[in-house]
Design a protein around this nucleic acid. Structure first.
Lengths: 260, 260
DNA sequence: ATATATTTTCCGGAATATTCGGATAGGGTG
DNA sequence: CACCCTATCCGAATATTCCGGAAAATATAT
């Protein structure tokens, strides 16, 4: 539990409380104390303090995560230049194609959905902004793997385990290494049924100044993605979109929009 | 600084560090230590621990908030029943009217934008999900004030100060009390130029089981909102939408969607 | 209604985790 | 190469956390 004797256990525990609160969806000191194996008087002190900070709410004896988290995340996203430049483009493509358009970045060796725009009829199979997924399980992640520095990509492939999400998920490191090269040559990646059955994805890297900033992808039902001409059409659309994003990112407006 | 001697200062400080990190957008121990008036060795301990938790990243000596916040907020939102039921309705209205549709909830005496859907051409004047604003400065907030229990509303009006956002912002408590009553009678609120010049808003309460869950609103340029027949049209659309939301909220599907 | 069980909140003192000055190492700049 | 600034490391003092147990509050059972 206390690995490094120099790290502040009080802080580590406080965040563990947040994690547990997220799972329990509202609980009292006793239950939380049980879950974390602490005296409930201690848990009480933690909850009281977390409540003071505003990140935890207390309603009739039940403590839960406070919507203040939304404010922190929202502000951060609002100030993110990649998000700001990508968003209008993603909207355009989503409305144009009526599919689901996603923007994924790498964080901590995993894929994190930074933003998503859905066309009016687009189907969404349970992915949402903020969700983290293993990189090797979908086209966006594989694009990221392909354009990550070799050593980082290799570390991810080597240190596994590489989760098997569906029966089509590629989990063999050598197969994934081969795919990295193919993606680097072609400049995009496609998958279907590898993360979720019925879901296909086309993804291209967002490279700015030679540096990988993320991947833009379109999600469509497997059937449609298998159709080569449609796949080609979608691919062109997101490639164009990425071009505009990278131009606007570099030469575009002020950067940070105003605050309300 | 240390108000209540029984609250855990380590936790309070840790969250203050997060706040400061949010403002600085990347900084080293020394700068952060200066800002919080602490020895930099102490700040180092905090940063090191926050980094361990995963909520802070360290890249070449610069510490910053980690995208992990997105994951926490995203999961929370994804599990929020009000959001889940409102979202498809908001999309429909946004595409139908081509304006900006918002869902605001009350938190800590202020208005918090839980979600926003923009029509393809909708203009967005700097509001974003997660943003918090004083309730008395826009239609959504006033609807919430009107349907909040009297004592809570009164506390907000009494304890001021009521910020003046534009020259049209209503800051007189008595005027706001009168408006509460009018809103309760009519069942909706309208404002223009009260929060942002050029921005008009129509808002209706989301009442489920007699309890206020939030407010749904449409934002449009002041000029369009001043047009009575258009205003009426928009109002009807969000009222219908709220009806569907409240029905689906009560009798709708499973509740929590699947995780990816 | 009354009794009983359970949970939340409060409190004081012991134990120990945090804190801070100072030492060291690392980076950048003229 | 010397200087300055910053990040990191360390050990000892002490202010904080932590826990057991009491009191209040709440829920459940009789």
């Amino acid at each position: 539990m206390s690995d490094d004797p120099r790290s502040l256990t009080t802080i580590r525990r406080a965040f563990e409380v947040l994690d547990v609160l997220q799972e329990t969806n509202g609980a009292g000191p006793t239950e939380l104390a049980r879950r974390m194996d602490l005296p409930s008087s201690t848990m009480y002190d933690y909850l009281r303090t977390l409540h003071e900070t505003g990140y935890v709410t207390r309603e009739d004896g039940e403590y839960r995560l406070s919507p203040r988290i939304y404010t922190m995340a929202g502000r951060m996203k609002h100030r993110d230049r990649l998000f700001q430049t990508a968003k209008p483009e993603m909207k355009r493509v989503a409305n144009d194609t009526d599919e689901l358009v996603g923007l994924t970045i790498e964080h901590d060796g995993k894929g994190l959905i930074l933003h998503q725009e859905e066309g009016p009829q687009a189907l969404n199979l349970g992915t949402y902004p903020g969700a983290m997924t293993p990189l090797h399980t979908h086209a966006s992640g594989k694009v990221i793997l392909a354009y990550l520095p070799d050593d980082e990509a290799e570390a991810i492939l080597r240190d596994g385990p590489l989760a098997q999400r569906t029966e089509r998920t590629v989990t063999d490191p050598d197969a994934l290494r081969a795919e990295r090269e193919r993606i680097q040559e072609r400049g995009y990646a496609v998958d279907w049924d590898e993360q979720v059955i019925g879901m296909g994805m086309i993804a291209v890297p967002i490279l700015i100044d030679e540096r990988l900033h993320g991947a833009l992808n379109i999600v469509a039902p497997t059937g449609r993605v298998q159709n080569e001409s449609y796949q080609e059409e979608l691919r062109q659309k997101i490639e164009e979109s990425v071009n505009r994003i990278s131009i606007n990112y570099q030469y575009g407006g002020s950067g940070t929009p105003r605050e309300p």
